[in-house]
Design a binder for these strands. Sequence first.
DNA 1: TTGAAAGCGCTACCAC
DNA 2: GTGGTAGCGCTTTCAA
Lengths: 330, 330
Amino acid sequence: MADIARMAEVDISTVSRALANSPKVTDDTKEKIRKLVEETGYVVNHGARMLRNQRSGQILVMLPNIAATFFPEVVLGIEDELQEHQFTVVVGSTRNDKEREDMLARQLLNGAADGMILMTGRLPDELLAQPSYDRLVVGVSRTVPNADIPQVNIDNRQAAITAVKHLFEGGHRRIAHLSGPIGSPTFQARVDGYLHAMDLAGASAQSTVINSSGFNLAAGATAMTRLLESAILPTAIICASDEMAIGAMDVAQKAGLSIPEDISFIGFDDLSFSSALHPSLSTIRIPRYEMGRIGARMLLQNLDSSRKKPENIIMGHELIERRSSRVHGL
Amino acid sequence: MADIARMAEVDISTVSRALANSPKVTDDTKEKIRKLVEETGYVVNHGARMLRNQRSGQILVMLPNIAATFFPEVVLGIEDELQEHQFTVVVGSTRNDKEREDMLARQLLNGAADGMILMTGRLPDELLAQPSYDRLVVGVSRTVPNADIPQVNIDNRQAAITAVKHLFEGGHRRIAHLSGPIGSPTFQARVDGYLHAMDLAGASAQSTVINSSGFNLAAGATAMTRLLESAILPTAIICASDEMAIGAMDVAQKAGLSIPEDISFIGFDDLSFSSALHPSLSTIRIPRYEMGRIGARMLLQNLDSSRKKPENIIMGHELIERRSSRVHGL
DNA sequence: TTGAAAGCGCTACCAC
DNA sequence: GTGGTAGCGCTTTCAA
């Protein structure tokens, strides 16, 4: 910048103002500087600006695993929203490792990131040190229990109830649930909803929950394999994610079961794949992209501490009925 | 840091040295400072350190769309490798928008990122301004033509040949290819390989290539729909990605075709889903995670300009034969 | 082994 | 409308 100033024969402060498009600089001067910048390919130094302004223009997204099918679409929504507001997105996969979580959280504390979107369902310990952390963090898609931060999510309990009801209407009574990690409030809420709905329908004796440590293909396959060992098979299965459902359906089909004739399936998420599968997969659609966008918007609002802290948002879910749970297999 | 210095009754420079674990600080002093840091929850300011050291500790990953199934696994490999070396990963989805590419590339120029992994197959114009850009950028999985940067990729042309050969061995002659974006060297190489292999086998009269603007489910479905309008259907189809194959198979099955009895399919990528589909999808496996890891490693090496610039790397691909291309449909 | 001080590149305040 | 300058928080050289 000093170079530009010298070449333009003005003070460095004028250059700074010109670049910030300050109204107190003549158009002539601005134009002269603009040209020089173009010619030299000058770019303002990020570190210096950051030090000076005490902000980085970066938002950290913390999630367990960017390769889990659920997350990329949420990240896309976050990116789209934040890019419009001149923020850059930093993604960190924690693999559920506390140490990695703390390492990433430090990005917030040291000023490398101005705010954070949390999709791990857990507040890193490091963060609690920071006094105003509740203004810097927003939880998305994985509820953080007892946290004083704004969150966006769907009503997972209600979603599970929706799934059970749907199967009940199809005449099913023996309905099993292949759940995700039991420690996660998200998956726990789905279990709760499932059990509650089964109970309401007087079918609680028929409830079966199989827990998994993950919610991917392999988890679904393993859980289904275990379920097949039961004396009496359920006639329908609610899987905690579409990915699990795909794994489970594969195992079921390999075991000679027809879907939906012998056994029905319904998942959670509505991946783009789910409609193209054979049979196509019924599911509870979760508005992933929108959740990301709205979460990002909430964070932006939250960062501005002069404004009211945003309220939690519960987004709608939607039952998508496809062939895997169709009565009479039509 | 000044606070810590005051409390420890030493100079700020001593604190700095202690935190850097300099050998010229007594263990006593270090210990005293370490305690204070712990108590106060002090974290060194990223901006200041960045300004001073002229490096950010961040690597930018530029890709078209984080939600396209191909990329997350690559990003995971990159993250794993870079985290081990204390770098943070910044992900930017460009949506093939030149403006976004330039905006992101500026992160490199302004020092917000120390290096970049490019998965868009195109070098942003902004970058060419930077004189030593070839030391800061590594291309992964999408070849950048005429670029003087190190790259990691598979041999896409050869991979397509492998696919054709496989189908030939299965007795197929009328083989069509549903290609991705024609402008992309990656997909162009697959087309080339396909045409070449068909030609070699004396079946070039039977060649059919259908281009798409993307390589997702919808692209596969659209291309397949167009193909179904042909007078003579192929007996086998090579899809430029597994995602396209899934979309295309769905359309084919809805049109009443049996896979592989009436028509065989083979894709590219080997998504985790591909083995769980019904029928399971034959594919050319691309080592995505490993490509990410190796690309990141190359970047690290490349950033150190005192070392030799790394060579391009061609990784192996592997034909995974599954039911969708099985002879006799066994 | 520790202290003092310069300076990284920028912005914003104050003076003119 | 422009110039001069302090200072953001850190690292590192030089002196003691």
